[in-house]
Structures are given as C-alpha cells and as structure tokens.
Design a protein around this nucleic acid. Structure first.
Length: 461
DNA sequence: CGCGTTTGACCCGCGC
DNA sequence: GCGCGGGTCAAACGCG
C-alpha cells in the first residue's frame, strides 16, 4: 500500500518513529514504486521537456499521447489487415468469375455437341438461365445432373480455365493470322486455309464472343464519346441509309488489342452518337476506361449468355427481363436481326432526368456507369468478372497516377473502404465508388480542354 | 520525323 | 455469277 501513497511525509506518526535512514529508504522506495508504474522512457522525455510543469502532469500527457499513438498504430494494422483481406477477396472473386466464364464456354460447348447429336431443345433452354442465375440454376441442375459429375466439373474449372485460356490465345492467333494473311490466302496458301475449317466448336464460341457487339447511344456534340481508351481511326465509310459517315476505330492501348469500335451519328437525331464496341481488351485499362469497358463487357456477356445457339436459333427476347434488369425495357435492347449479336444501351433517355448532363459526353458517361453497373449488379455472379476487372484500378492507380483526379479518387477510395467495411455487399459498394471516381474524374476534366481523358483518348475534336 | 487521320482501293459475305 | 454493302488496308497527307 505504501507504493500507492503519494504523500508519505504527511504521516507524521510513521515519520517520527523512523530514523533518518528509514526516511531515506522510504524516499527511495517511493521513487522505485513510481518507476515501476511509469515507463522510464517517459521519465526521460519529461526530463527533456520538463519546463515548469510538474513531472506527474507531463507523464500523464505523454501517456495520453503514447496511448493515442498506440491506438493509431493498432488502427493502421487493422486497416492493413483489412486491406489484405480485401485483396484476397478480390482474388477470390476474380477466380470465381473466371470459373464462371469457363463454365459458360464448357456449357455452350456441351450444348453445341448436344445439338449436333439431335437432342431436343428443352435442355438447351436451360443454358442462358443457368448462366444468368447460377444460384438458382445450380439447384435445377442438381436434380438433372449427377452430383458427382458436377463436382468433377467444378474441380476442373480452374484447370480448364488455364487450358482454355491457352486455347483461346491459340484460336485468336489463328484468327488474327488468318485475317492478317489474307494476302497469303489470295496467293493460294493452302496450309492456312486448311487450318481455318479445323477450328472446333470451342473456337466458334470464342469467335462468337469476339463478334458480340455492344452499342451505346449517347448524346454528344463531339466526334466521339470519351471512354478513357486510346483509339486510332483506321477507316471511314458512308453507310447506307445514313447521311453521316461511319468511323472505324481500333484500340491502341496495347499492341494487338482486338477491340474495335464504330462511331456514327444517328440519322434521325444527329445529336445522338452511336458507338458500337466489339471485342474485349487484352490489357489493363485506366480507371477512366474501366466503367465503360466493364459495362460493355458485362452487356456482351449477358448478350452472349442469351444468344447462344438455341433450338430456334433466335436470341431469347426475354433475356433482359430474366436478368432482372428494371432498366432494360427502355435502356437496353437486343438485336437478333443484326449480322452479329448486338446489345444496344440507350443513354439518350436519362431516367434521372438531369437535363444539364444531356449534352455533355463526359457526364453522359459518368451517368452510364452507375446506372448500368447498379442495374447489372442485379446479376452479381454474371458480372463478377467485370467487377474484378474494375478492382484492378487500385493497382493502376498506384502505377499510373491519377493527375487531377487524384484527390477525388483518394476520397472515393476512402469512401469505398468505409462502405466495404460497413456494407456486406462488397461488389456493389466497389462499383459505386469506382463509378463515382469516373464521374468525378470526368467532371474534373470536363472543365478544361486538355484533360486526362483526352490524354488517353486523343480523338475529340 | 513520327504519329494520327484521310480516303480510295480492295476483300468478303450475302442476296438475287 | 454479279452487284451491293460492310469492313479493312495502306499510301498519301497533315500536324506538332
């Protein structure tokens, strides 16, 4: 108890009874007990910064600072751990989405085989549904498919993914080779022409994916909407039935990127710019391009999921309704009559009724992403792929920098982190944050003529 | 000089 | 087989 007695000298009785040595011992003991409770390092600090303050007061303040520091360090560790956990989540989601994609390819391949073998169309109709709503479809499939086979299938998905990725590359190489060596074919290159028919149904599916198109209608005064990508114009043609020429662009962000787009003004409404995207990027995209690429990719995936060869050979017109897209009836339409399966996203009818956005292509795009991303999030497993692509932007941000958009991006990232920790709907929060980045980025850049978007997209007049 | 655009020629698929 | 239309190529051109 003496150790806690900060005023031993007030106890006259004990003081009188003790001799001088005892008194000294008592003082020593008193300091020893203080040292026992107070960190010596703090003593050193208080000695250095002592000033007129009593030592005890300084100790208390420094203890508070230290506590705050420790709390901050702890918080930092927690944030780091959370960050690590999120990265693992992202990786996991990426793997899942790839697995889903490969499952789609496998299913369509299987479907194709069934069709060749003359199986009735009843089973075939399952395919789009199983892709769009995997959770439900799995239950359905469970009753129709032996669980052992299903298990084996799911186990081999990752392995398949890697193998098919290789195949995909081979097929693409072959296709590109076939396209680029058309002159060689003209000269009678029999070897190559023999190769092309050998492409199996898998390549048919992949070429289907390559041919799938996503058309975006948006109001814009400029020659092209700023989607964040780098494009190089390689042709222009007068299309029949439209006085406005159609321009052909190729993605130049990576050598050999298969993505192309056509830009044409609407014949009925010249203020409407119709941009048709074809193919998928084979390279990482800048944050400004993520939303558009993801949206078109998602739309293309959705389109393909519903446009796979069915018994009647037509695109299921109710696919959008099945996909629970409330916006689909007035924002997205499918075209079965076009030479290639095409989905059109109409952004000219803005449901949020923000008329001041309508003439601004940047803001138009900033509107596009949250709207479509949120709407398409109704099919979370389907769009896992695109979402995972979007999550890559963190790395891109680190490596590429964000110029003027950096502060807003940082804020959005913080907001996203907060949202993630608070909201179990991780993907939705992430999409919201990322698309808000796009929005802020565009709004930041739209004010100046030389913008980040224009750096990436040197195509605006 | 390098890079992007323009533009006429060419290729290819499809319908008649 | 022929013509048409969509899509691509590549030489010429312009710009910084």
């Amino acid at each position: 108890m003496d150790a806690l007695d900060f005023f031993p000298h007030k106890s006259k009785e004990t003081q009188d009874d003790d001799d001088e040595d005892d008194d000294n011992d008592n003082d020593i003991h008193h300091h020893q007990t203080l040292d026992f409770h107070v960190d010596t390092s703090l003593d050193l600090l208080t000695k250095n910064t002592g000033g007129n303050r009593p030592v005890e007061e300084n100790d208390a303040l420094e203890t508070m600072d230290e506590k705050r520091f420790v709390a901050l360090v702890t918080e930092l560790h927690q944030v780091n751990a959370e960050n690590q956990r999120l990265r693992e989540l992202i990786d996991q989601m990426n793997n899942n989405s790839n697995a889903v994609r490969m499952q789609l390819i496998k299913i369509t391949q299987k479907q194709h085989n069934l069709r060749k073998n003359g199986v009735d169309g009843e089973k075939e109709e399952m395919v789009p549904r199983s892709f769009l709503d995997i959770g439900v479809a799995e239950k359905d499939e469970a009753s129709q498919q032996p669980s052992e086979e299903k298990l084996r299938e799911s186990k081999s998905v990752v392995d398949l993914m890697h193998r098919c990725k290789g195949n995909e590359k081979d097929v693409e190489d072959k296709l590109d080779c076939g396209r680029e060596s058309s002159k060689a074919r003209m000269e009678g290159d029999q070897e190559l022409s023999n190769k092309v028919p050998k492409l199996d149904q898998n390549s048919e599916t992949l070429s289907m994916i390559k041919k799938a198109r996503v058309s975006v209608r948006a109001r814009s005064d400029s020659t092209m909407i700023a989607d964040g990508c780098q494009w190089r114009k390689y042709g222009q043609k007068m299309a029949k039935g439209n006085p406005c020429p159609r321009a052909y662009y190729r993605c130049t962000m990576s050598t050999g990127c298969p993505v192309r787009k056509q830009v044409q003004r609407c014949a009925e409404d010249r203020s409407v710019l119709i941009t048709t995207y074809e193919g998928q990027h084979n390279h990482p995209l800048p944050p400004t391009a993520q939303a558009m690429a993801s949206t078109t990719s998602a739309a293309a995936s959705m389109l393909l999921s519903g446009s796979m060869p069915s018994s009647d050979g037509l695109i299921n017109p109710t696919i959008l309704e099945n996909a629970s897209l409330p916006c689909s009836q007035n924002m997205a339409t499918l075209s079965a009559s076009a030479p290639f399966p095409t989905i059109t996203l109409d952004l000219t009818q803005n449901p949020t009724n923000s008329s001041h956005h309508q003439r601004d292509p940047h803001n138009q795009l900033s509107l596009l992403s949250p709207l479509l991303a949120q709407k398409f999030m109704s099919v979370p497993k389907l769009f896992g792929h695109s979402l995972c692509d979007q999550t890559k932007l963190a790395g891109l941000h680190e490596s590429q920098g964000m110029d003027a958009a950096a502060p807003s991006f940082s804020n959005s990232l913080n907001a996203a982190t907060a949202a993630i920790t608070a909201d179990p709907n991780f993907t939705a929060a992430l999409v919201a944050a990322i698309t808000s980045v796009m929005g802020s980025s565009h709004s930041n850049t739209s004010g100046t003529s030389n913008t980040t978007g224009d750096h990436h997209c040197n195509n605006n007049a």
